[in-house]
Design a protein around this nucleic acid. Structure first.
Lengths: 169, 169
DNA sequence: GCCCGATAGTTTAGGCTTCAACCAAATCGG
DNA sequence: CCGATTTGGTTGAAGCCTAAACTATCGGGC
């Protein structure tokens, strides 16, 4: 650790040396992050200008479309966001008439969310466009590269999951 | 384009068929996104519990550490965020005594940001820990896989950049 | 029947982020 | 020199997001 590194690190040497040679992982992570950020920013931008919506709204609709009615908690887990977050998101989508809530009579704590007819219609339009955008952004990557990247990302996910489980011990 | 796709897509067929077979790209993108999200969430969490700070703050300090004094606009471009965002971020970091601002005498619109002594000290601690976390999360990925992933992400970035340039036409 | 712990959601406070409108300083063309 | 444009930065409104505290309901043990 020794956090007393007071050398006047200049721009050149900034990323050059390291205590344990973890620079490669760092470079990999930064590249992964910028790649994702670029795609995400473009998708957010297009959702806004073409459909006047946002990525979180789109994601929630996608969950309902794919999995049918879901409780707030299920949506929260699937989207990997806090439940408080889903509360607000669902409120906005409900106000826009894209989803509706229904309290579970058997367990009155639960309420399930489902798409309205209008929500299904809107999402179908957005979803088709979205799929095209993604294809367009990755069009420069050949099928073999795409497959290889998919596989390696799977291994990366496994590595990360393992590290997270380890930590939870 | 023809966004009038009105079929009542049900949950089963949701991801099953597609107009042009762009499902593979979509799957690739979703995997890329979740991988990044998992790492990012963990880094945010550790920054919060171990250093009571946030990822954007850390990123801004990193920019200054690596590149020396920068104007707000330069930071904005490097971090790929809006300039209004940097205004607030810099205000908080200045209030915490980690950075300081200095108006450029030659062009009084500009002001450069630089780390304070305390900022350098704090960032050195955080940075060392951060590097270790990233290495830990990717530890399950062998050097060959890491290198391959890095290369493929480079190609993906090139593809995305090309698509964005195309669009700007 | 009643308390107790667990679970589903909401609320609150605070930070991050964007866009669009704005202000101030610099630059450029005439 | 001076108006028009550009550039650097700030502000305001709105949405997203989290952690932590809270409310309501359910289930089980006694």
């Amino acid at each position: 650790m020794s956090p007393d590194d007071q050398r006047p690190i200049d721009a050149e040497t900034a990323l050059a040396d390291s205590p344990a040679g973890h620079k490669d992982e760092l470079r990999l992570w930064l590249r992964l992050l910028t790649t994702t950020t670029m795609v995400e920013a473009e998708i957010r931008r297009r959702l806004r200008v073409q459909f006047a919506t946002t990525l979180p709204r789109f994601d929630l609709l996608a969950q309902l479309q794919r999995a049918g009615p879901l409780t707030l908690g299920e949506v929260s887990r699937r989207m990997m966001v806090s439940n408080g977050n889903v509360t607000g998101l669902a409120a906005r989508l409900e106000a826009e008439g894209l989803i509706e809530r229904r309290v579970n009579a058997a367990d009155r704590r639960e309420q399930s969310l489902r798409l309205t007819a209008r929500g299904r219609r809107e999402f179908a339009r957005q979803s088709a466009a979205h799929e095209g955008w993604v294809a367009e952004l990755f069009a420069g990557l050949g099928p073999a590269d795409q497959a290889a990247l998919h596989k390696l990302l799977g291994r990366a996910k496994a590595s990360i999951s393992a590290a997270l489980r380890e930590e939870a011990t």
